[in-house]
């Protein structure tokens, strides 16, 4: 199958001379959820800003759908690739949630009915009925983030990029993000998310790309990446606690990486009679 986003040998050098990404190759297909991991300054944001044309590659090429990002306007690309910024204050500015939701569609010069149906869909998805007339600035930070997300989703882009969606969120907010990502996937969107939240990736159990010093050093399923000690160490990452715990129990299924509490409990139920054997791990 043709990938929806295809990144070919892409490098980006900022005007100040910093090469933030180097020779990246990446294909993202329909229906995928891709997590991007890496330490601060490793080039994650720079990479995803290429997907909607905010940055153009200084070397290499990116195709989104059938469009070459170099040749398309950002506003057009943005209708295919929604980008939710880390800080919702950069994105929201209208006096009511409802106006906020309609804003992107208006920029795309859609008809009134079209806007109405799309906004209604976003309202239903995000369950925003009761907040339509609220001023986004009166909401708390996780609600405001949700409004920012909803306003991007209202345009119904194929791809949705989330830059650190759980940073600064409480437990409830994090759980909500998890729920939303799953919902986006069910609705047939491609989700690209940058995060430092290993627990979130464990729960999503998705494809994981690891960036380190401007280069892509791993690209595989989370369970494979998390069990690769070399990669994890190189990128300065630690798998979720439950995975670390599982690694210490020697008689767990060797070939499997346990990413969630549920998966361990499942194993325990299946192996009731056996004793848990704790070792130094593999």
């Amino acid at each position: 199958m043709e990938p929806y986003i295809s990144v070919k040998n892409v490098s980006h050098k900022y005007p100040n001379g910093v090469t933030a990404i180097k020779d990246i190759n990446l294909d993202i297909h329909e229906g995928e959820v891709v997590a991007i991991l890496g330490s601060n300054g490793s080039g994650k944001t720079t990479l995803v800003k290429h997907f909607n044309g905010l940055l153009k590659p200084t070397k290499g090429e990116i195709t989104v759908g059938t469009m070459n990002t170099k040749k398309e306007r950002i506003s057009k690309l943005s209708s295919r690739v929604g980008y939710v910024f880390q800080n919702p204050n950069h994105q929201t500015f209208l006096p009511s949630v409802k106006q906020e939701l309609a804003y992107g569609c208006k920029n795309l010069k859609m008809t009134e009915e079209d806007i109405e149906t799309r906004v209604q869909k976003a309202i239903d998805l995000f369950r925003l009925e009761d907040r339509l007339d609220d001023n986004p600035f009166d909401l708390n930070s996780s609600q405001r983030k949700e409004v920012a997300m909803a306003s991007i989703m209202a345009v119904s882009p194929k791809v949705i990029v989330l830059d650190e969606p759980t940073t600064g969120q409480d437990h409830k907010g994090c759980k909500r993000v998890l729920e939303l990502v799953r919902m986006f996937q069910r609705e047939g969107h491609i989700v690209v998310l940058i995060t430092h939240d290993m627990h979130l990736i464990g729960e999503l159990n998705c494809r994981t790309v690891v960036m380190n010093q401007s280069e892509k050093i791993a690209d595989d399923h989370a369970s494979v990446v998390f069990s690769d000690k070399g990669i994890m160490e190189e990128a300065g990452l630690q798998p979720p606690q439950i995975t670390q715990f599982a690694n210490q129990i020697t008689n767990l299924d060797e070939m499997k990486t346990y990413l969630t509490v549920e998966s361990i409990i499942e194993w325990m139920k299946a192996n009731k009679e056996e004793d848990v054997k704790v070792g130094t791990g593999s």
């Binding site: 943005s78 950069h90 500015f93 920029n107 345009v155």
Partner: peptide, 30 residues
């Protein structure tokens, strides 16, 4: 950053002069 964030909301910053003047609101409000 605000400029990029608004472009991500399908704002066309390379439009006509009138469009550009209108764009001042989404730029300057945030």
């Amino acid at each position: 950053i605000v400029m990029e964030a608004q472009q991500a909301r399908c704002l066309d910053v390379k439009g006509s002069l009138i469009q550009r003047v209108k764009n001042l609101v989404p730029m300057f409000a945030p």
